[in-house]
Design a protein around this nucleic acid. Sequence first.
DNA 1: TGTACATCAGTGAACGCGCGTTCACTGATGTAC
DNA 2: TGTACATCAGTGAACGCGCGTTCACTGATGTAC
Lengths: 199, 199
Amino acid sequence: MIKNKKNYHHGDLREQLLEAVRQLIESHGPDGFSIAEACRAAGVSTAAPYRHFRDREDILKGVILSAMTRMGSAMQEAADAHPPGNPERIVALGHAYVGFARREPGVFALMFGQAGQHSDDPQLAEEGEGKFAIVLRVVADHLGRAMDDPEVTARAYALWCAVHGHCFLVLDGKTDETKIDIDEDAYLRLVGSAFLPPR
Amino acid sequence: MIKNKKNYHHGDLREQLLEAVRQLIESHGPDGFSIAEACRAAGVSTAAPYRHFRDREDILKGVILSAMTRMGSAMQEAADAHPPGNPERIVALGHAYVGFARREPGVFALMFGQAGQHSDDPQLAEEGEGKFAIVLRVVADHLGRAMDDPEVTARAYALWCAVHGHCFLVLDGKTDETKIDIDEDAYLRLVGSAFLPPR
DNA sequence: TGTACATCAGTGAACGCGCGTTCACTGATGTAC
DNA sequence: TGTACATCAGTGAACGCGCGTTCACTGATGTAC
C-alpha cells in the first residue's frame, strides 16, 4: 500500500513546488511569489499543484510548516550541544535562531512578519509552541526551576523578544542605517547575562 | 504663491489617499491594498493618484514616511514626559513604541517586516535614524555618558531589540499561542532594569 | 509471465478578474489686464 | 469690476498583463488475475 511517489510521473512534485516557492520568497519577498511562477520553476503546468494543495493559501502553509521544522531542528541541535545549565547553551540557541533568520530571511519574515495572518492555524500554532518550549527548557535548566515557573516564562520570553527583535532589525537593514555595527556574539552574550545572571 | 490646495477640486486628495491606503493596510495587511481600492475609498477615478504620486511604490513610501513621523512624535513625547535619568523615561518610551505597534499593526509590519525592501531609500533611512537617536539620548542621559559611547549604543540597541521583538510577537499572536500572558508593563520594566541597572 | 484494467499525477487550454498605468479630455479655480 | 486666459486636479475609457482556478483529457504506473 505504500506508494513510491518518486517513480510516478514527475517525481516528488510536492516537495519541488514547496522548494520553488521558498526560493521565490527569498528572492522576491514574502508576497512576491505566484503559483504560476513556481510552476514554471518546477517545469510543470499551472494546474499540477492542485493535485497536492487545496489552493494558494495551502501552499503557503506548507512552506511555513517546513521552515518551522527546519528552524526547530536547528534550535534543538544547538541546545543539545551544551549540557543543561551551561550559559553557552543560551548563546548557542540565540546563534541558531539568528542563523536561520539570516539564511532564510524571506521565509523568516513570512513566518513572523505578516501581522498575525497565519496565527489561526492550529498546526502552525503547535509548531510555534514547540519552539518556545525549547527556550523554556533551556531557561528552566539554567535557573534550576520548573518550566512553568513564572520567573522562567518571564525570562524566557524576554530572551526570545531580544533575539527576535535583533533578527528583524538585521534583516531590515536597520543595523546599517543606524551605523551601529553590532558584534552579534557579544550582543547575544549581553542579552543572555542580562536575563539569566550567573547564580 | 502659496496655494491653498483645500479649495482646488477634491480637497486634499494626497492626504486622503494616504489615509485610505493606511486603512486598507490595517484591514488587509501590508500587501493587501491596491491603488484602485484606495481610489474607490477616496471617491476618485483610478487615474487621479498620478497627479500626486509617481507610482504605487511612491504611495507606499508616503504611507511609511507619515507613519514614521507619527511614531517618532509619540516616542519623543513619551521621553519628554519624564526628566533625564529617571527610569520611568525608559518605560514610557517602551510603552509609546508598543502602543504605536498596537494602534497601527499593519503599518508597523509594513515599516519593519518586509525583509528590508524599503531600507534603501535615504529619506526613510533618515527617519529611522531619528527614532533610534531618541533611544540613544535617553540611555545616554540615564548612564550619564555620551551618545556615541559604545556602552550606550550597545544597551540602547539591546533595549530596542527587546521592545521591537515583543511588538512583533504580540502582533503575530504568538503571545496567545504560547499561552503566556505577558504583563506588558512588568515586561518593559524587566527589560529596562536588565539593560540599565540603577547605578 | 502476460494482459486487461484501475488509478491518478500531470496537461493544456480556457475562464473571468482586478490590477497598474496611459491617454486625450474637461471643467473648476486663480490670475492678468 | 469684468472678462479672457492659463493652469492643472481630476475624468473615464482603454490597454495589456499575469494571476488563481476549472475542466475534460491523457498516458504512465501499479495491480489483479
